[in-house]
Structures are given as structure tokens and as C-alpha cells.
Amino acid sequence: MNNGSGDEHPVHMHRHSFEITKVGAKPTFGVIKDTIGLPRYSVAEIDFVADDPGATFFHCHHQDHVDGGLRRAHHLSAKLADVGFQEENLIRIWRARDPE
């Protein structure tokens, strides 16, 4: 996730927890959350296991930011979920917002 703005964004994922693997230049290990406070002008990396098929909503907790487009719905297929908790099933999210 890349936050190029001067606002902190508490970014939340529904139906899944994720591991925060990096905030800015600082790697982290074993921090499991469903919301991350994305600092101003910073980047963060998260990993999660896509083991729950269906629609998943990913958004900022500031309503005016959601209204402005800081949200995304993902659809996770049952085919991917059937593979299970193997390392190759980790999905890395780089951006919380469409590039458009």
C-alpha cells in the first residue's frame, strides 16, 4: 500500500486478518491485524492467506476518504481457497486504491 498523501489512513480488510510485513523501511514480523494505520507519505506491505472465498471489502476507516474512493472490493475464488494455507497462496497487496 502506498500513501502519497498527508493524511494517515486506518485501512481495514473485512473477512480476513493479515500480517504486516513492512511499514516504511522497517520490516515487521508476526503482527496480525485486520486494520493498519498507514502513516503519511509512507508505504506498507501486508500478506494474507486467501482462504475464505467470496467478496471482501478493503477500505479506509475515514468515511470521507471512502467517499473519495479509498476502497476496493475483491472477489476471492473458491478455486484459490481450496488450495489451502500454503506459502504460494499468500497475496501481497501493494495498493489500497485503484490507480485511475
Rank of each mutant, 00 (worst) to 15 (best):
G68A: 15
D67T: 03
T35N: 04
R40I: 13
D64Y: 15
H65L: 08
D34M: 10
A73N: 12
V49P: 07
L76C: 11
D52I: 10
H75N: 04
D52Y: 15
A78P: 04
L70N: 07
I46Q: 07
D67G: 04
D47I: 09
D52M: 13
F29H: 04
T35E: 09
T28F: 13
F48T: 00
P39A: 09
I36P: 01
H65A: 12
L80R: 00
V66G: 06
D64K: 09
G69N: 06
P53F: 12
G69D: 13
V66Y: 11
H62C: 12
C60P: 00
G54E: 08
D34N: 15
G37A: 06
G68Q: 08
F57D: 03
Q63V: 12
G69S: 12
A50E: 02
G37Y: 02
T56H: 05
L70A: 12
I46H: 09
D34T: 10
G30K: 00
V49Q: 10
D82E: 05
A50S: 05
H74E: 05
V43E: 08
Y41E: 01
A55W: 11
A55C: 08
A81M: 03
C60L: 09
C60Y: 04
A73G: 04
H62I: 14
D51L: 08
R72M: 12
G54N: 06
L38K: 01
A50M: 04
L76Y: 14
S77Q: 14
T35V: 15
A81E: 01
K33F: 11
G54Q: 05
G37P: 00
D47R: 13
R72P: 04
S77K: 10
D67M: 09
T28Y: 11
K33I: 03
D64A: 11
H75W: 07
F57S: 06
G30L: 06
D67S: 07
H74G: 03
G69F: 12
A44V: 02
F29K: 00
G69A: 07
D67Y: 09
D82T: 02
A73Q: 07
F29W: 04
D67K: 02
S42Y: 03
A55H: 07
G37E: 00
A44T: 01
D52T: 11
L80M: 10
L70C: 14
H65M: 11
T35C: 10
F58M: 02
V31E: 11
S77R: 10
